[in-house]
Structure formats: C-alpha cells, structure tokens
Design a protein around this nucleic acid. Structure first.
Length: 940
RNA sequence: GCGAGGGUGGCCGAGCUAGGCCAAAGGCGGCGGGCUUAAGACCCGCUGGGGGUAGCCCCGUCGUGGGUUCGAAUCCCACCCCUCGCACCA
C-alpha cells in the first residue's frame, strides 16, 4: 500500500482528539510527572515553518517522556499583550496598502474576512484558530487544549494583577521616570513600529555644560563632556530662534525647540521671551569649569533642533570646530556682518586637552589636513570627525589640567567625570536624537521623560535568589549558562508598563498596561489552574492558591493541582530570549514560589531560516506552517525539522530536502508494511540475527542517551539512519525470508518504531498497531536487551565486512573477474604477536619485540616476527583496538568458512579457505601476508 | 564597541569539554554500475588531488597566522569573518 500520510494522519488526529489522549488531570499513581512548556506564540500574524520547530521540539520531548510512562502535561496559550495586534488592526482599518498586502498575499487572508479582523480580539482569534491552532493540530502536537487561554482573558488579568500586587507589596517595583519615544503630535509614547522616519535612530543622553551668561545659564549639549577644558568659544546659529526660559527655577537660554524638548523631559519649563541670535553673538560666556571667558560666535552648522542649539567649540579636538574657526579667520566678513571684530578669532588658540598616539598637539588640525578639508560643508568632515572621536575615546590620555583624571583614558573616566560635575551643578543632561524622527502620523518624535514603574531586577536579594534558582536549572545547550549568569548580573531596573495596548492594567493605576515581557513570567502556573478558572476568579483567589497558609477548599484543590504539575521540568524557548524573557522567568519564579517549585530545565532553540535567509513576513519570506504539512504530511515536516539540526542550532527550510525527507519516509513505510504483512517468523536465531539485535540494542542505548540530552537529531540519526545501515548489511548477509530473520526484522522494527514515535508519531503508531495490535505511543520506550550484547558478534561481523572491502579493493585495482577466491587466515604464531601488541601499554616496535624475543618460538624467526610486529602495530592502529581485543576470542577460520556461501554470492566466485599454517594451495605465495584479523587473499 | 555563541569536505552537519585508531560518522546532492521493456523504487561502488594489474602509496586539508607536543580539527595566543543580544519590538 502506498504511503498516504493524509489519511493515516487524519485517523490518528481523530483518535487523539475523540479520546482526549493529551488531556491530563492529576494522577497520583503516575510514575513520574513531567511538565513541559514552550514560549506561547504571539498571534499577530500566521504561523509559519519557523514556528513549527519551536512547538514540535517540546512535543517530541513530551512524547518521549510519555513513552517512559510519565504523566505529561504540554499546554498552549496565546500571548496578545501589548501593541502589535492593536497596531495591525489600526493599519488594517485604514486599509494601509502594505498591511493589506501582507494579510492577503503572505498570510493568505481572504478579503471577505477582513471585517472579522477589525477588532484586536477578532484579529488575534482569527490567526489563533485559522493558523496557529489549526497547524498545531495538523502537526499532531500533544497539547492539552482544555488549558488554552489568552493573556487578555479577565481571569488571566486577575492572575497578573495578583502577581504585580505581590511584587509591589514586597518592594520589588519602583516608580521613576524613563525616557521614551514620544510623538509630539499625538502626544503619546510610540513604539518602533509607529515610526515612519528614523526607525533605527536611538536617542542619546547629551551632557549639558552650563555656561554662565551673567545670571543666566546657556547650556551647551555635548557627547564629549570631558572636552570642557578645551573650549575656546561657543557657536550659535545666527538664523535660529532662541528663547529665554525658566527651567527648574533657573533662567536658561536655549533654542525654541530645545525648550519644548526640555519640557517633555520632566522639567518645569516656562518660556519667558524670544531672544534673537544676534543678541548673543559677540557676547561672552563663562566656562563653568575653567571660569574662562569665551566669545559666542556665529556658525551656520549649528542645528537648532539638535541639543540646545548652542554648542561649545573645541578646535583642538573637533574637526568641525577647527575648520569653522579657520574659515572665520580666512573670511572675516562672516563676523563683520554681525558687527564683531575679527580680531577675536585671531586671538583664539586651540587648547589641547589630551594626547593620542599618532597625533601631535592639535589632532583636529592634523586630521583635517590629512583629509584635505578646508570647507565646513565638506562631507568628508563627518568621516574625519568619526575617526578622530574614535581614537580619542579609546586612546585619548587626558593632560595634567585634568587633575585627578590626568593620565586616564577618556573611555575609562567619561562617566565618572560627567557625574561628578553634574553633582556639582556644572553639568546637566538631556536626551535627544541625532537626526529627526518622524511618527507615522507625521508628528515629530522627541524623547520624553515619563513616569513609569520598574521591576527592580538589580535588587541584591532578588538577584541572589535568582542566581540560586539558575544553579538548579538544567540548561541546554550547556554552553548557554554563561549567558544567563551574565544577564542576571547585568539586568538593571526594567520598565514594566506601557501606556496602551492589550493586557493587564497596572492594579493601582489603570492608565498603564503591564508590558508583554513582564506579564509572561509565571504563566506556566496558570496552565495548571486553567481548567478550574471561571469568570468569578479574582486576585484574592490566586493569593490563596499560591501564598495563603490556610486556603479555602477550592483554593486548596487548585493548589494541589498546581503542585502536582509544578515545577516546570523543561521550558523551551528561543536563544534570543535568554537575555530577557527566560531570565525574567527565573527571577519571578525565584521570588514568588518556593524553591522546590523553581524551574528544573530550560532548553533554548535556534532560529529558522528560509533558503538561507532569515524568515520575514513583511518580505514575504515565509512558508505558512500548514502548507508543507498538507502537501507532505506532518511526519515529514517533523522528521525534516528534527533531523536537520539539533534544537539549539539554526535550521534552514528548503523545499528539496523536505521532498527528499518525504521519500525517505515513504520508503520506510513501504518496506516495513511489507514486513508486517508477511509471515511473522519464528524465534530461531542465527549469529547474524543476534548481531543485528545487538546493533539494535546499541542504537536503543545511544538514542536514549541523546534524548536525555535533548539531542533529538542525534537520536533520530541513530534510530533511523544508523539502523538503516545495519539493516542493509543484514540483508546482504542473510536470507531474509528465513523464519528467524522474519522474527528478527520484526523485532527490530518494533523497537525502532518506538524510538521514532516521538518524532513521527503518526506513521509509527500506525505501523506499530498493525504489527502488534497497539499503537506505539502506549507501548513504552524500549529497553536494552542484555541477551544480545555480545561484542564477539560485532568483531566477527567487522571481520567479514573488512574482508569484503579488501576483496573489493583488489577487484577495483586489478579490474579482474575471478572465478576462485582463496582466503588464508594467519598462522597461529601471529596471534601471539597480536596478543603482545594488544597487551603492550604503548605498543612500540621495540617494546613488543623485546617481549617476544624472550620466547624461543619467536626467536627462531626473528626477522619475520619483526616485520609482523610492525605490520600488526599498524593494523591495530588503523582499526579499532577494541575490535582486536574481541578478535582474540574468535576462530577466524570458522567465521570465514561459515561465510563462504555469502562471499560466493557477493563475488560470484568459488571460495576456498585455508590456514597459513597448512595451506595446501598457495600458487601466488599469498598466505604469508595474512595477519590476524586480516586474512590474505588470492584471486584467480 | 560590549556580552554570548560559532567558523569542518559540493551542501547540511558529527567530532572537538578526556590530543594519536580522523581523510574526518551520518544524511543530502552528484557520478558510475546492477536490476528493470522503461521510469521510479531498490541494491553495489565512487565522490579533495595524484599514482598503482593485489587489499596500497604520495601530496594537500577542518576560518587565517603563530605556539605547545613525538603527534592537533581537537590545547594555548593573536587576527579575520558570521550569528544572537545590548533593555521599552515581542
């Protein structure tokens, strides 16, 4: 019967579904309980093949544990917190072309269904039902769907409310301000997705150096506060608008735009009056650090929409400033129009503040010269600036004028320097972008300081608790542990709320929503309770379940279920979530639950690529999850994903290999169905049968070890391909219609189906049921049968295999077609030499010879023995030493004679076997070449 | 730039935490042969280069360069390149 995955898979899906195979309630009699979770998906689009492995890997593990008799819970839910879905709905409602294109062309949504998608929940529901859940069910994921929920469900929100109230009570949340991207038009914070221009732009914190202008402050923004001692003058844009404003009680002069920005950044700003640049040009300001009096000069390069619109000039170290001053010198008219005496510029001397290797006193002058720049508008100026700034930052050594900082590298002390003078009141700071950022609505985006709540991940107690929690986690792959440790040490305070979006409002301030990475830290616990939660649950109930000393009966029952499943045995997630979600997961578990309930294992997975490139919905570079399943079947998709890479490695989805995988499975199906439909045979075993059963045991062993380490690829490799190799040899070696062979093949198949069941559950269930009457998944994981672990059988088989290879090699070289093959086993004394080689710790020629020459029977043919020792050392070196150890126990003559009919079949020639000691026929004088384990051969 | 991981044959990938049995598992792809009316499937062989009428020999090779060692894909150092993360996208 041809392989027809569609019908087989449908049958099993129906059975699983109708009989509720994966719906599990606590069973106290279960041998062991395994709780497997995976990061719940975010259904703001369709599920594609990149997601498939994410959910299939935990399924493979869940199925593996079930075969071991565990009661396994693998649940699923939907993360819809935050803004992506809301944004998608907004863009759909506006029929934004890009959004319509992605929905129709990439996600294949019928336009007739658009109305369904025009609410956030409708949008989420659509993709949950039509894409994620549909595909997951097609794939045969062994999920207990009764526990499904979304993070926007009222009872989930109560759960999160409980979590945050608890953390709040424990002082692990704190209120503070935080800079955010803020649309000045919509007057609200915006996310990266909302940005039209400058999406890549990141705001920076500028230092404001508070120059004095009488009683007034003129703050100048800089990214290099340490250059303050090198300032010779200030630059102001003669055409820009400036204002005098009261800022936090002081009077400042800044550009009009800067005043608006400062207002957004949690400062009390009151604009007092506009002030023209002309009023300031030519005036003097006092450097707050050096107390030097410096002139304000005009410069058109000063951008009033960047920083404060007034900058300090450090000609020794800033190519821009150097070139501008030079141009003012060569063309004094630029100053004269503002009524300034050009002599001022003549008097300005660059002030070097640091030394860098490879530069002289005035690095800016040098680099400008090297680039040949004379014009302030020269585009090369930017490059020169970048180069010099880099050198100065990483290699600039501050000069003596810097007192305690003298001799230090800029990179090392900038922050300290900055904060010291900030504390002294000479510096301040503001956030700004370096280029304009525009919102989708067209409004300007600025940096606003906003009140927010933080999770205090840098709290020492919390941190150390989390470190302890990490110690108890089985991290896979093991080399990811460093990343966790590093993250725990590195996390600071995490802003955990947003202004809008789906999800749970902050319990004590419902203007805010708890953000997605913060409402997904302990939801695994929610799965355990989900079947019992209805609409009347409130946060008090969760408190009773998780914390109360004397819970109500209802809460106690729920706590019992929670504790039945908990802790999470393995959490599966993605590599890139180690630095946030997975570490947060550890933090919150460490805080909210008792140590026995802390996470036991985390396995992180690599990324998926499509034909070598990262998958991208917007670029249309995705394959929807259900497509290949519908075309090739779920087993093929699962098998492909599990054999193409280990879970933590990246995998590449390519169509051809998937089709090849289908062929592999189809072949497997056909061949094994034939075996099942044929006679069942008898347990009358010959050595070759026992050999194969021994190989099977080895595979069972190694596949089990691999599965324990989540090395699914390696396990599959062993169970499928390695056994396939052994079977190929077996078929070559023996008559497979023998009753003993039938029995053996069926036994191998039986265990093989079990080993492969977690990977390809449909086909293995079907074949196993046809073979034995029961599905593979109820039959249990196979064990090792000690009866068939005879290494001598392996040694004998490799002797035969090597012999076949050797004969083949000779045939290839000689291009002959012999009618007779003579085989000579080595003389008895040579076995003694082999023994001596094997027994030697370090088999060197000298050592072995020394040992042998003490015996008369070797001494009388010293030269021959010497040659033999060399040959045997090479031979042992060449092949596995273990093989030779077992070889000592074998009777080569018997093995080869027993293989004569096999060799005759293989080579279509008569076989004669002799011992070198008593060879009656040796026309080509070959017998003497025989070595133990490597008989001499003569073709005729 | 910082943190973490990685670079193996046409491709995917073992091996590298216990250095020698590693020209390097396995799969895929390719080539040749067998079987077949034929295609597919299946079976056998080859697949770094060169040579060989006897099972073999020579050269090169595991990002690059250097080092340790009798001996390195495996250990150490430097460099180059790639991926992920660097906090309000989830």
């Amino acid at each position: 019967m041809e392989y027809d995955p569609a019908s087989i898979e449908q049958e099993w899906r129906d059975r699983w579904d109708e009989e509720g195979w994966y719906e599990v309630d606590p069973d106290e009699d279960a041998d062991d309980v395994t709780f497997v979770t995976v990061a719940y998906p975010y259904p703001n689009g369709a599920m594609h093949t990149g997601h498939v492995r994410t959910f299939a890997v935990p399924d493979v593990y869940a199925r593996y544990r079930r075969l071991h008799g565990d009661q396994v819970l693998y649940p699923m839910a939907w993360h819809i917190t935050g803004t992506p879905i809301i944004g998608a709905v907004e863009r759909l409602k506006e029929r934004e072309s890009e959004q319509v294109r992605i929905l129709t062309e990439v996600y294949e949504v019928d336009e007739a269904d658009f109305s369904e998608l025009e609410t956030p929940m409708g949008f989420a529901r659509y993709f949950i039902e039509n894409s994620y859940k549909y595909s997951m069910q097609l794939l045969g994921l062994s999920i207990d769907w009764r526990r499904e929920f979304t993070t926007n469900d009222p009872s989930y929100r109560e759960f999160i409310s409980w979590q945050y109230e608890t953390l709040h009570e424990r002082g692990l949340l704190k209120q503070d301000t935080h800079p955010v991207n803020f649309c000045t038009n919509e007057e609200q914070p915006v996310t990266t997705h909302d940005i039209l221009e400058g999406e890549e732009e990141e705001f920076q914190s500028y230092t404001l150096v508070k120059f004095r202008f009488g009683e007034t402050v003129i703050p100048m923004a800089t990214l290099r506060p340490e250059t303050v001692r090198g300032v010779t003058n200030a630059f102001i844009n003669p055409d820009a608008e400036y204002v005098r404003a009261s800022v936090d009680g002081e009077t400042w002069i800044v550009s009009a735009r800067a005043a608006e920005k400062l207002d957004l950044q949690e400062r009390t700003v009151e604009v007092l009056e506009p002030i023209g640049a002309a009023e300031l040009i030519g005036e003097s300001v006092i450097n707050p650090i050096t107390k030097d009096e410096l002139p304000i000069l005009p410069a058109s390069f000063v951008d009033p929409s960047n920083g404060t619109g007034i900058v300090m000039s450090v000609p020794a170290h800033s190519p821009d400033d150097w070139v501008t001053l030079e141009s003012l010198r060569t063309d004094p008219s630029q100053l004269e129009v503002h009524g300034i005496d050009s002599a001022i510029v003549e008097e300005l001397e660059p002030i070097p503040i640091l030394d860098i290797e490879g530069y002289g006193e005035i690095p800016a002058a040098e680099i400008v010269d090297r680039y040949g720049i004379t014009d302030p508008d020269d585009p090369a100026l930017e490059e020169a600036t970048q180069e010099l700034y880099n050198h100065e930052f990483h290699g600039g050594v501050l000069l003596e004028m810097y007192g305690e900082f003298a001799g230090e590298i800029v990179e090392e002390i900038r922050d300290t320097y900055q904060s010291q003078y900030t504390a002294a009141g000479h510096f301040d700071s503001m956030y700004d972008f370096s280029t304009p950022v525009i919102c989708r609505c067209g409004g300007r985006v600025e940096v606003a300081e906003q009140d927010t709540w933080f999770l205090r991940y840098n709290d020492p107690d919390w941190r150390s608790k989390t470190e302890r929690a990490l110690e108890g986690v089985d991290v896979q792959p093991t080399n990811a542990r460093d990343q966790y440790e590093h993250t725990i040490g590195w996390l600071e305070e995490w802003p955990c709320i947003r202004n809008y979006g789906l999800g749970t409002p902050l319990p004590w301030d419902d203007d805010f929503i708890i953000e997605p990475l913060s409402d997904s830290t302990i939801y695994m616990a929610y799965y355990t309770l989900a079947p019992h939660l209805d609409d009347d649950v409130d946060r008090a109930l969760f408190n009773e379940i998780f914390l109360a000393d004397d819970p109500s009966d209802r809460a106690a029952a729920m706590r019992a279920e929670f504790e039945h499943w908990y802790p999470v045995d393995v959490r599966f997630s993605a590599n890139d979530l180690i630095t946030n979600h997975l570490t947060f997961y550890l933090y919150h578990h460490a805080e909210l639950f008792d140590e026995p309930l802390w996470p036991q294992g985390i396995t992180t997975m690599g990324m998926g690529f499509l034909r070598g490139k990262s998958m991208s919905s917007s670029a249309g570079r995705v394959v929807l999850a259900h497509k290949p399943v519908e075309r090739y079947g779920a087993d093929t998709v699962r098998f492909f994903l599990m054999t193409s890479a280990e879970p933590w490695q990246d995998f590449d989805w390519r169509d051809d290999p998937v089709a090849d995988t289908y062929n592999q499975l189809a072949r497997f199906w056909r061949r094994n169905l034939e075996l099942i439909d044929g006679p069942s045979g008898e347990r009358e075993l010959t050595p070759i049968d026992e050999w194969l059963l021994g190989r099977l045991n080895r595979v069972v062993e190694s596949a089990t070890d691999s599965m324990e380490e989540f090395e699914i690829r390696a396990a599959t490799q062993a169970a499928f391909f390695e056994l396939e190799d052994d079977l190929r040899w077996y078929r070559r070696r023996t008559e497979t219609d023998r009753p003993g062979a039938r029995w053996t093949l069926r036994e191998v198949l039986r265990k093989r189906l079990l080993l492969l069941n977690p990977i390809i559950p449909f086909m293995t269930n079907e074949l196993h049921e046809r073979l034995t009457g029961e599905p593979a998944e109820v039959a249990g994981w196979p064990g090792v049968d000690d009866e068939f672990m005879d290494p001598a059988l392996d040694a004998a088989e490799s002797l035969r295999g090597d012999l076949v290879d050797d004969i083949q090699s000779i045939l290839d070289v000689t291009e002959s077609d012999p009618s007779l093959i003579r085989i000579y086993t080595a003389a008895e004394w040579k076995r003694g030499v082999l023994e001596a080689v094997i027994e030697a710790d370090e088999p060197t020629h000298g050592e072995v010879m020394g040992r042998l020459m003490s015996e008369e029977r070797y001494r009388h043919r010293g030269d021959q023995v010497s040659d033999m020792v060399g040959a045997i050392i090479d031979l042992v070196h060449d092949r596995s030493r273990k093989t030779f150890e077992h070889l000592m126990d074998l009777d080569e003559m018997e093995i080869i004679e027993g293989s004569a009919s096999f060799l005759e079949r293989e080579f279509g020639a008569d076989i004669e076997v002799y011992s070198e000691d008593s060879a009656t026929e040796d026309p080509a004088d070959r017998a003497k070449h025989a070595l133990p384990g490597r008989p001499a051969i003569h073709l005729e």
